[in-house]
Design a protein around this nucleic acid. Structure first.
Lengths: 119, 119
DNA sequence: TGTATATTTGAGCAAACATTCAGATAGAGG
DNA sequence: CCTCTATCTGAATGTTTGCTCAAATATACA
């Protein structure tokens, strides 16, 4: 069961062919970073609440803050992050900025994840 | 456009009805935490590589470490996190532990997210 | 029983992060 | 031009997180 052992360079490998196969089909650095940034953005309770609220309808910053029970500054910081990843977009009406989801992907991701969370 | 203004308790609200609607359909605390934990687990390059490799076939710890170019200790720590969230499961064969995805949800989440990342 | 191997564990540390606070913009209306 | 309001921004802070290193398990095998 140990025919393919190797030990040089301090990195132990039991199944060399499987390691090579895994490396071949690995995510590219760009894909990895893009995925990590996307999931990181979703991996926070406040941002999840923001995005979930925006699933229903567009909302302005202070309504979002009121709905979450968070400060407007905190919400604004989060929205900036979400905007930089193009997960949300906004529309100005006078002094008020209305935020909405930039596309359907995020909503689908959250709904799919909810299925898993609910077992 | 400002008929529903309110200002008490320092929390400004422009559209009171929309805020109430958002609160009504908000995620429960449990859902929020479950989702955040799940997405947080996916929001890391190393864990993504591990999970992506496991979408193809089960692998043991040191092969995973070799495929990622990471230390076995680091991989083991990540696997413990993933195991605690029931995202991966393992099978022992002698001294060697083979890890696999616990179910199809994670793979589907990553594939869906990849679609978004690839624009 | 003793050694070797695969993996786990815990402490410690540096980097990344979320929130707060105070102050800066930017549009609306007088 | 001045003020008000909605939002943004940057610095500071306390917390979380991912890694490393050293040491502990656990199983196989002599």
């Amino acid at each position: 069961m140990r025919e393919e052992r190797e030990d040089r360079c301090g990195s132990r490998v039991i199944h060399r062919d499987l390691v090579e196969a895994a490396k071949d089909s690995a995510l590219s650095a760009g894909e990895r970073e893009g995925l990590a940034d996307l999931f990181k953005a979703l991996g926070d309770g406040s941002r999840l609440q923001i995005l979930w609220a925006l699933t229903q309808r567009e909302l302005c910053v202070c309504d979002l803050a009121a709905a979450l029970g968070a400060s407007e500054s905190a919400v604004s910081h989060q929205l900036r992050l979400l905007r930089s990843l193009r997960l949300v977009a906004n529309r100005r009406e006078g002094v008020v900025l209305y935020y909405r989801l930039a596309d359907e992907h995020v909503a689908r991701l959250i709904r799919l994840a909810l299925e898993h969370v609910r077992e």
